[in-house]
């Protein structure tokens, strides 16, 4: 995979990037399925109204910041400023983990307010929040793992790698999960 070029001479999109776009379409369909199920369910009886924990605002800020840092990392890579690049992808990964931690503390907040997400006392309204948010967190985790892989590769590999394709793909994906969260955040706050 060392010979992979990031952009093709004839201007066509790289197949692996294209695969990512189709995969993102596929992920969108999964969340579309879940959020439309949410809307259907909401119109039925026995729906709990509750306020979202404040900490979701902080997690939103964290993930938006991480989108900025990964963009800077991509620019640093292209400028061959590897030290800066490594710092920036480390920061991005940490922000990803922070985001997940904040989401979990949001769940804990709900539990503390006696609004359980799961279990026999739970209401579908919060269960939906739990399932959708956890699925989104798993997608963020996937991005963190991908960053970890290229991070290790940047240290271990003896061959200098000038292809920006992996980081380009990951940053596209990272922005995607960011937008996905913003959509979900707006959905949970105002569209529901």
């Amino acid at each position: 995979m060392v010979l992979v070029k990031s952009s093709q001479a004839d201007g066509r999109i790289h197949p692996q990037k294209f695969v990512l776009w189709v995969a993102m379409g596929s992920i969108v369909m999964m969340f579309a399925g879940l959020t439309s199920a949410y809307i259907v369910k909401k119109s039925q009886a026995n729906w709990l109204e509750y306020s979202l924990p404040l900490v979701f605002w902080y997690s939103t800020i964290a993930i938006i910041t991480s989108s900025i840092t990964i963009n800077m990392a991509l620019k640093a890579f292209k400028a061959r400023e590897m030290r800066q690049y490594r710092t920036l992808i480390t920061v991005t990964s940490l922000l990803g983990l922070l985001f997940m931690g904040l989401q979990i503390s949001g769940f804990a907040n709900l539990e503390a307010r006696n609004i359980p997400l799961f279990g026999s006392k739970s209401n579908s309204a919060t269960s939906f929040l739990g399932v959708i948010t956890i699925l989104h967190m798993l997608h963020v985790l996937g991005g963190v793992i991908a960053l970890l892989v290229i991070f290790i590769r940047a240290y271990v590999s003896k061959i200098k790698n000038y292809s920006s394709l992996p980081i380009e793909i990951i940053s596209t994906y990272w922005h995607f999960v960011d937008f996905l969260w913003i959509y979900l955040f707006i959905f949970f706050n105002w569209l529901r």
């Binding site: 379409g25 369909m29 399925g33 879940l34």
Partner: peptide
């Protein structure tokens, strides 16, 4: 690609 994820969400 567009329909299996919806089944997947149903399964989840």
């Amino acid at each position: 690609v567009l329909s299996f994820p919806v089944l997947f969400s149903g399964f989840i």
